[in-house]
Amino acid sequence: MRKALMQTVSRIPLVVWAVIVIYPIIWMFLGSFKDYGEIFRSPWALPEAFEFDNFVQAWNDHGIGRSFVNSLLVTVLGCTLCMLFSLPTAYAIERIRFRGSKVLFNVYLASMMIPMVLGWIPLFFLLLQLNLLNNLLALSLIYAVTQVPFTVFILCSFLSGVPRDLEEAAAIDGMSQYGILFKIVAPLVTTGIITASIMNAVMYWNEYFMALIFLQSDEKNTLGVAMDLLANEAEYTNAWGALFAGLTIAIIPIMVIYAIFQRNITKGMTEGALKG
């Protein structure tokens, strides 16, 4: 009896926190189907009708569609570039003995602790000089490099768990080191590549501040900046429905990714935090 009571009591904080987490998200979904009057008249009720006007409006009139495509571009490109930079480096650090490998590893490690803000001012002027401000490709490259340290760690930890037999066998068969890296090692650490890439994709998709600084026109805005602009606009135009629709559009890919790769994401994040 006492045990059952304890069980119930100890659950209360869990239930309360679950409500605090889920409620705002549900509220956002419901709000995306309501018009202005409805949101303030009955903020807690179900929408009177499930119509997609707000979504169409957000997508077309408020630039969410355009920035969705931009975000998709920087996310995919950023992940690809990051992996191309990180995998060979991780392989060299983990598998090839060379002087300074430990130092290099530690330089990458230490850079994860340094505040990015400090670098943004010089980076801004570097891009200005190279005429690369407001350029999605340049932003993708920057995104890729900012996640290189994290990705190198994740890949190193996966590589250390892969036995060397296959590499040695391939080397005896006369395969070049380049072949070994891309044809033998890369497939062996697929899980690591997926884990790191998913984490990176989530970071890039959600990134806000660098996009705010390095992008300068509506056509180039990624979702973070576009949503922030829409939120400010909504204060004057009362386009709350469209704002919620925009937020919903932005969060759906994250939910899908989370549903599919939940394990990779939680593993990647905890490992990254433990190392960093």
Binding site: I25, N206, A231, A250, I251, I254
Partner: peptide, 15 residues
């Protein structure tokens, strides 16, 4: 409980 960790800080702020 983990889901907010992968939400955009923009969405969190606006909500």
């Amino acid at each position: 409980f983990f889901f907010p960790n992968i939400m955009s800080v923009v969405i969190i702020g606006i909500l």
